[in-house]
Computed example of a mutant assay.
Amino acid sequence: MKILFIGARLFDDIALYAKKERITSVLTESNPDSKNLELADIQYVVPRGMEKPKEIALKEDVDAVVPLIGIDKPLIEVSMLKEDLENNYGIPVVASPLDTVITAGDKLKTKEFFIKNEIKTPDFNKFSKNHSKIDLPVVLKKFEGQGGSGVKIALTPSDLEECIPYFEESFAEKFVEGFEISIEVLRWNNKTVPLVPVCKGKTTLDCTHPLDKLKTAPLNIESVNNEYIKETAKNIADLLGSQGVIDIDIIFDEKEEISYFIEINTRPSGTRYLTAASSDINPLNELVDMATGKWKSKNVLKRLKEYYALEIPMGDYKTDKNNYKFRNFHDENCFVIHGPEKFQRITIRSTSMQKAFDTANKLNIDYKKFY
């Protein structure tokens, strides 16, 4: 079996699994300095875009393609490549189709999708110079953007005035005070498996990114129904016709006790280590199984386990174990260190949340500052 992987940044997360499955890995990457290039059996440094990956897929006569794209901008091109390779060459591409990506990639289209399908989402209005009716604080969102880019929380009328030149193509969404939640959903061959809801910490008025917060799984918040979140996430994936893995963002309103669905991302999630630690299902490995034809939703459900997971930002952490050889959660009490320099994180798995915090204490990790 030969698979083309597009993008080296996440390849270290599945390099061992690809070897275990006896897959010949072909890897394309636009950054010639990527350390992960050497992990593949065959490597190509290519220009940005999907023209060269298509050429290489055909040249190498691959059996399938797995895009490992962790950012939104190239996803439209990936979906167009999928359409081309699947329809004209019979090569499966484990990624969402074009219509799904368009809906998820435009925040306004996502809001309209939620409303059309009666999925709870915060109230919003298109943002314009005539904003006198907007209640503060409010979240201003450009139609495109990820990781906090294109997002601003306006606290005062002067904040709104300052934002007018930069947020002409945007909408104003009610600021919800509560907990940020994420859930990954696997879907292939019209079979769907929602994984575990993850808590990414409390919402903040300074737009603190979840990467800079302490995160836990499974979600354990009073008045939050995890099964409702999973069922709604499954419904979203089915309605969208997503393929591969998607990540859905939610905010639980503490005052109203309502789970509001916010965004959909048709790419691997930044919470994938928490998902793997708490459920024993590695979302990226599942993409490989989809590519090989091995993936069965019933098998995933049988393999689902229930652990507790804790993820803590580390910044720089002196270790020789932040590499592809140590990315598996091998037993019921263990940890994995991951992330680039200055942005390293540790994800701890245990049989209880208290034991996970005990492990953090033994490692002399100061996690209390992230509460």
Score class of each variant (00 low, 15 high):
150 G>N: 10
312 I>L: 09
345 R>P: 03
146 Q>F: 12
100 T>C: 15
279 S>Y: 06
130 N>C: 04
294 K>N: 15
60 E>C: 05
265 N>D: 14
352 S>T: 14
129 K>D: 01
226 N>C: 15
354 Q>M: 12
195 L>W: 10
151 V>Q: 09
281 I>Y: 05
280 D>L: 11
163 C>P: 03
217 A>G: 04
235 N>R: 15
224 V>Y: 07
328 N>P: 01
336 V>H: 06
112 E>Q: 15
125 N>W: 11
135 D>H: 11
185 V>N: 08
113 F>A: 00
181 I>M: 11
10 L>R: 02
24 T>N: 07
309 A>H: 07
209 H>Q: 12
71 I>L: 09
132 S>K: 13
267 R>C: 12
84 D>P: 02
354 Q>V: 13
126 K>P: 01
72 D>T: 06
277 A>P: 06
311 E>V: 00
88 N>T: 01
318 K>G: 06
102 I>M: 12
9 R>M: 03
234 K>P: 00
117 N>D: 00
73 K>V: 15
332 E>I: 07
202 K>G: 04
290 M>V: 08
169 E>H: 11
296 K>R: 01
144 E>Q: 10
349 R>F: 11
312 I>C: 07
34 S>E: 06
132 S>R: 12
346 I>Q: 03
27 L>P: 02
163 C>S: 15
172 A>I: 00
164 I>E: 12
95 A>E: 02
255 K>F: 10
39 L>E: 05
108 L>Q: 03
2 K>D: 08
303 R>I: 04
49 G>R: 01
212 D>V: 04
96 S>Y: 10
307 Y>W: 12
178 G>H: 08
8 A>W: 07
119 I>L: 05
348 I>Y: 12
66 V>G: 09
233 A>V: 02
359 T>V: 15
192 T>I: 14
5 F>D: 02
285 N>Y: 13
158 S>Y: 12
48 R>T: 13
85 L>Q: 02
99 D>P: 04
319 T>L: 03
115 I>V: 15
361 N>Y: 06
281 I>D: 07
162 E>H: 13
167 F>I: 08
210 P>Y: 14
55 E>A: 14
100 T>Q: 01
359 T>A: 13
56 I>D: 09
237 A>D: 00
64 A>R: 08
116 K>L: 02
211 L>M: 14
349 R>G: 13
343 F>T: 10
100 T>A: 14
358 D>M: 09
297 S>V: 13
21 E>H: 03
191 K>P: 06
120 K>R: 14
93 V>Y: 00
81 L>W: 08
153 I>D: 10
